[in-house]
Amino acid sequence: MTALRLLFLVAFGLALFIAPLGQGNYIIYVLCSWLIFSISAMGLNLTLGYAGQISLAQAAFMGIGAYITALLTMAGVHWIVAVFCSIGASFVIGLVLGYPALRVQHHFLAFVTLAFTTLVFLVLRNEDWLTGGSLGLVGIPRPVFGPFDTMKQLPFYYFTVVCFLITAGVMAWMLHSPWGRAFKALRENPIRANSLGLNTTRMTLLAFAIGSAMGGLAGALQAPLVQFIEPGSFTLILSLKILLMVIVGGSGYFFGPILGAGLVVLLPEMLRFTDGYYLIIYALLVLVVMIFSPHGLIGLGQKLLSSFKPREERGDLKQGAQL
């Protein structure tokens, strides 16, 4: 790790703690949802950017996580217990959905997960004895940790920051472990990874299930943040939004989804003055980014950086790549 990178990390961490000070409740709410969507997008990045599979089920997993946490905490269970139930359930459902679906991979996986998201929405809307139907669930309590009550917006923000940092830490550790390297090998060249003795099916399935579990965690944070959930917030549109976060930020880069989530969450706020036209501008921006930089914003940044300061490459490596 270079000194520059360390400096950047410290600055980022400090910015996270300073950002909400002196801001109104609404700004803090937007920051919270940025962090929560970052967690969800990091999960999808694991499936998409590292294991190379398109999943459109992230919204469904957020929904599952949010509903489980909401129902349990409203029944008096502590949030800590509820969040582990949410993560566990998402992980298991991810395994059960992924096991047969990953036999087909790529665009077929996209379609299976697309169907799954719509099915989950239908169940959430129609089984009103459990989920409250299309009216949703109201009055989800925020967690209390001894003297630290997150009922107010600012404490809840710091609570979200802690969850975010833990998740990001676990993610970074995982990606640097032999496991994470196996994920990367899978994306770069699945056939070679397989011939080197990696069980590619099992690795892909694990990446998908862990990504889903992170969606469940994001849902478990979303429920107490908004304190109201309804099936309409977990439809396909949300899945597409999370996919956008990963791609626009830069899939396969660690900070890509965090940047992308910031953009997707904050852009509507910034474009508010344009009234109803914001979605049009938003879609146009995405199109332009995709046409000029298919590797997302971080990819674009790296391209620009390397055009100013060409990285010295070892000649023998270059030659090896040509062979």
């Binding site: 998409l48 398109i54 790529h106 665009h107 996209a110 597409l240 996919l243 956008l244 791609i247 626009v248 899939s251 109803g276 036209y277 979605l279 049009i280 938003y282 879609a283 146009l284 995405v286 199109l287 995709m290 046409i291 298919p294 590797h295």
Partner: peptide
């Protein structure tokens, strides 16, 4: 055409964005 050399994924995203663009334009 400009996106095809980069694989299917960016194109998938671009068509999703195009869909939103068309829908919202008609609405507005």
């Amino acid at each position: 055409e400009p996106m095809l050399p980069h694989g299917t994924l960016p194109l998938v995203i671009a068509t999703i964005a195009l869909g939103i663009l068309m829908k919202e334009s008609v609405k507005e």
